[in-house]
Design a protein around this nucleic acid. Structure first.
Lengths: 343, 343
DNA sequence: ATTAGCACTCGTCTTTAAGGAGTGCTAACA
DNA sequence: TGTTAGCACTCCTTAAAGACGAGTGCTAAT
C-alpha cells in the first residue's frame, strides 16, 4: 500500500498530538484537529490502513492510536520541522569566558536539561587527535616528579611520577628540553616506538624516566580511560509517566549515575559521521539497552580540530524532536563559536 | 513515665523487627519474637505506654507500631550493636595503589553502595589547611601562562592565566623563584595582604602578573568552589517502598545529581567534631530538606593532617544502623591506613 | 469515496462487600 | 497488682461487580 498525501497528513497529526498529550489519539480528535475536513469515520479507515502498514498501533481495542517506532522514524526522517531555539543563557554564560572546561560542560548540561525537560549528557571533548603543546617535568619532592602536559585547546593533564634515583636540576632541564623538542606538536598517535627509543638513547642513564614519562603521558591522554561525562536532569524522566515506573526509572537513573554505559553512546555517535552530526535513536535503535523505552538524540560538537565531544538528550519516545534537534543544532553551533572567539 | 528494662527490650524488638521488614509490628509478633515470655495483651499495654512516650507510633488504628524519629534516636544512641564489616574488596583495591584520588573515591563510593544497598556519597578531601609545596609558572603560548600549584598530599591544581605583555624566559624564572620562596610551605590562610604587596613590589613592572597568579592560586585552592563530591547507588532508594514513590524519589535523585546540596551535609559534618567522627541524622535532623524522609549517616575521614573529607550513606529511616556505622568505621580506618602506607 | 449510525469492546473509575490484622478494653486469674 | 484471655471494634487491603465512556469496526445510505 502506498502512503498517500492524506495518510501522511493524518499520521503527522496523530504523532504531533501524541507528542503533546501522551495519550492515545482517537479519530474524532484528528477529524477536528486537521484542516482536511474529513469525518471521523474516514479517519478511522485511514487509521486502520496506517496501522496495517505499521506506523501506528493500538494499546488495546477501543483505544486510540499511538505512533510505533516505525512511525516515529518516519516522522523524524521526513516530517520534522526543526524549531531553532537560541539559548540566551548560554550566550551569556559563554561571555563569561569559562576557562574551566568541566564547569562549562556541566553548565551546558544543566541548561539543556532545564530548557528541554529531558535528561541530558555531555561528554568532554576527546583530545585524541590533538597536538601536544607543552610538556614540563618538575621536581616536587625528593623522589617525585610532576609531569604536566598541555595539549592544544589548553587541556591540562598532570601526573606524579615516582623515581628511584636522584636527579639534579641540570638533568631535569635536559630532560625537559629533550621531551619538548621531540614531542611538541605531535599527536598521541604520532609517537612511535622508534621515537621513544631514540629519546631513551639520548637520555642515557635516565632512559627509565623517559619511559615513565611517556607512559604517564599516554595514560593521561588516553581517551577511553577518562572519558568524562557530565549529566543533568536525570530526574526529568519522572515527568513522563511512561518512564516513571520504578523498574524503568531505576534502570535509567542507574545508567546515568554509572555513566560507564553512556560511553557506548558517545562511541557510537562519534563513529558515525554521515549526517549533520545529529542522530536520533528511537526505542530499540539505541546502543544502550536500558534505554530501549526512550528516544535518544545525540549531536557531535567540535572545538577546533580533532576535539570532538557528544551531547545527548534522553527522553520518552514522544519527545519533542523538532525542539530537541533544533536546540542541539544551535548549541553545537554556539560551542563552535565559543572556541573561535577564545583562540 | 520511666523507661523500664522491659520497655526497652520491647522497643528494641519492635525496632529490630521493623528494620528488617519495613512493616508495622504487631503485639503478637513481639510476644513470640522476644524471650520475655509475655502475652500479646501485656505487650499491647506496654506498647500503648511507649506510644504515649513518643517512641513509637501507629500509622492508623488497627495497625501495628513503627518507630518514631525519637525511637530511632534512642536506638542509635543506646541500643545499637555495631557490626564490624571488613570490606575485602577495598583492601584489594587499595593495594593497587590508586594514584588518582578521584578514581579511588569513586570506587569507594561504588563499593559502599554495593555493600550496603543504600545511596552513598563521598567528598574529596578539602585541602584547606594544607601547605603549598610547589608553584610553577610556564609559558604555553605567546600570552598564556600555565600556573601549576602542588599542595601537600600531591593534590595538583592548574590554571591558565592570560597576560597582556610579553615575558622573556629570564623574567619568568625570576617570578617562579619569587613565588616559591615566598609561598612555599604556607597555607592559603597564611597568605596575607602584606606578603602580597611585598611580592608585588619585588616583581616591579610585572606586579599585575603576581596578582593574577595569586588570584589563580586562591581560586583553585578555594575549598567551597570545587568541593568534589562523588555519589553512587542513588537508585538503591527504589529498594525501599517508603522512598520509592515518584515525588520523593525524584527529589532525592535530584539532590544526588546536583550535588550542590550535598555540600551542606559535608559542611555540617566537618564542623561538628565531638564524637568518633560518625554522625547519624534521622529524618528531620538532616541539614538537607529533601532528605527529611531518610536517615543519613556520615563519617569524617582523614588523610594525613588537615585533609579531611566526608563519607555519607543515605537510606530509609529503617536503615541497618548497626551495619552502616560499623562499615563506616572500618572504611575510614582503612582509608587512614592507606594514606600511611602511601607516604 | 465519504459519512452517519450503531453495536460492541475494553480500560477506568466507583461502589460494595468480604477478609483480616491488630488494637483497646473488660473481666478473670495468680 | 501485674498478667492474660476474650471480644468487640477499627480500618486497611483486596476482590468483585457495575456504571461509564471513549473509541473502534462495520454496514448502509448519500
Amino acid at each position: 500500500m502506498q502512503l498517500s498525501e492524506r495518510k501522511i497528513k493524518i499520521l503527522q497529526a496523530i504523532i504531533r498530538n501524541y507528542l503533546e498529550t501522551g495519550e492515545p489519539v482517537g479519530s474524532r480528535t484528528i477529524s477536528k484537529y486537521t484542516d482536511l475536513n474529513l469525518s471521523s469515520a474516514t479517519i478511522r479507515n485511514e487509521m486502520s490502513d496506517l496501522e496495517e502498514m505499521g506506523y501506528i498501533l493500538q494499546p488495546h481495542t477501543s483505544a486510540g492510536r499511538i505512533p510505533s517506532d516505525k512511525g516515529y522514524r518516519l516522522y523524524v526522517d521526513t516530517m520534522m520541522e526543526e524549531k531553532d531555539r537560541e539559548l540566551e543563557e548560554l550566550k551569556e554564560m559563554m561571555l563569561e569566558r569559562e576557562d574551566k572546561m568541566d564547569h562549562l560542560l556541566k553548565q551546558v548540561a544543566k541548561l539543556l536539561a532545564a530548557n528541554t525537560n529531558y535528561a541530558t549528557m555531555i561528554s568532554a571533548p576527546t583530545i585524541h587527535t590533538n597536538k601536544i603543546k607543552f610538556i614540563q617535568l618538575s621536581r616536587v619532592d625528593v623522589n617525585q616528579l610532576l609531569a604536566v602536559v598541555v595539549v592544544e585547546g589548553n587541556v591540562i593533564k598532570n601526573n606524579i611520577i615516582s623515581v628511584s634515583g636522584e636527579l639534579d636540576d641540570e638533568t631535569l632541564l635536559k630532560l625537559n628540553i629533550l621531551l619538548n623538542t621531540h614531542l611538541n606538536g605531535l599527536t598521541l598517535e604520532e609517537i612511535n616506538l622508534g621515537m621513544i627509543s631514540a629519546m631513551k638513547q639520548q637520555a642515557g642513564i635516565h632512559s627509565d624516566i623517559v619511559a615513565d614519562v611517556i607512559d604517564a603521558i599516554a595514560a593521561s591522554i588516553k581517551a577511553e580511560e577518562d572519558l568524562e561525562i557530565y549529566t543533568s536532569g536525570a530526574n526529568n524522566i519522572f515527568r513522563y509517566p511512561e518512564l516513571a515506573d520504578q523498574q524503568k526509572a531505576s534502570e535509567i537513573i542507574n545508567t546515568f549515575e554509572e555513566k560507564q554505559m553512556l560511553t557506548e553512546l558517545v562511541q557510537d555517535t562519534l563513529s558515525d559521521e554521515k549526517n549533520t552530526g545529529i542522530q536520533v535513536y528511537i526505542g530499540n535503535e539505541t546502543p544502550i539497552q536500558t534505554m530501549k523505552d526512550c528516544s535518544v538524540v545525540t549531536a557531535t560538537y567540535e572545538l577546533g580540530e580533532g576535539m570532538r565531544g557528544t551531547i545527548g538528550i534522553i527522553g520518552p519516545k514522544r519527545m519533542d524532536y523538532d525542539k530537541v534537534v533544533g536546540t542541539l543544532k544551535t548549541i553545537t553551533h554556539q560551542l563552535d563559536e565559543l572556541y573561535k572567539n577564545k583562540t
